[in-house]
Amino acid sequence: MTTDTHEADWAEAMLRVREARDTAAFEAIFRHYAPRVKAFLMKSGAEPGLAEECMQDVMATVWTKAGLYDPSRASLATWIFTIARNRRIDAIRRARRPEPDELYWGPEGEPDQADVLALQEESARLGRAMEQLPEAQRDLIERAYFGDRSHSEIAAETGLPLGTIKSRIRLALDRLRHEMKMKR
């Protein structure tokens, strides 16, 4: 598995969970992401016990909300991050998290395969750009995402190439909106 196909392969595994309730695919996702979600929650200030508890919740949500995962808009890591972040706000900050309306491809809808691949490649590129950042800068970004509120502004100016990934997502949203309109 090369680095470039990595993201696309996880997205593929997630689609098997969504379409076929494939337990083996889910277990592979679990083995890779559960330890990372737990680490993310602990770095955000959760005790190991609470982190394990919340992580299991997050991974269960990955299964139950599989129908909402859109591989033309997010890598699997990004989608799981949003679930983990919301769980953290709920558990650690004990605050409500207002969320935007969900957009999804209806039961028969599917994003274009080329769009999916392009987005997944873009995500892989972003991951590599992250790795190449000077350590101090990467550290600031990570702290912002671990919920260190004093670093929240940093994330706005990451110096990471977000323009291309944004235009990919924008395109996917346009197609999704079009699809939703056709069904109405």
């Binding site: 330890p35 990372r36 799981i80 991050f81 949003t82 983990a84 992250m130 995402y145 671990f146 990451t158």
Partner: peptide, 19 residues
């Protein structure tokens, strides 16, 4: 969602914590 993608990269880069 593009800013969320940075969060995805942060999660991917987290050192695995034994479950």
């Amino acid at each position: 969602e593009s800013i969320d993608a940075v969060g995805g990269a942060v999660l991917e880069g987290c050192e695995a914590e034994p479950v």
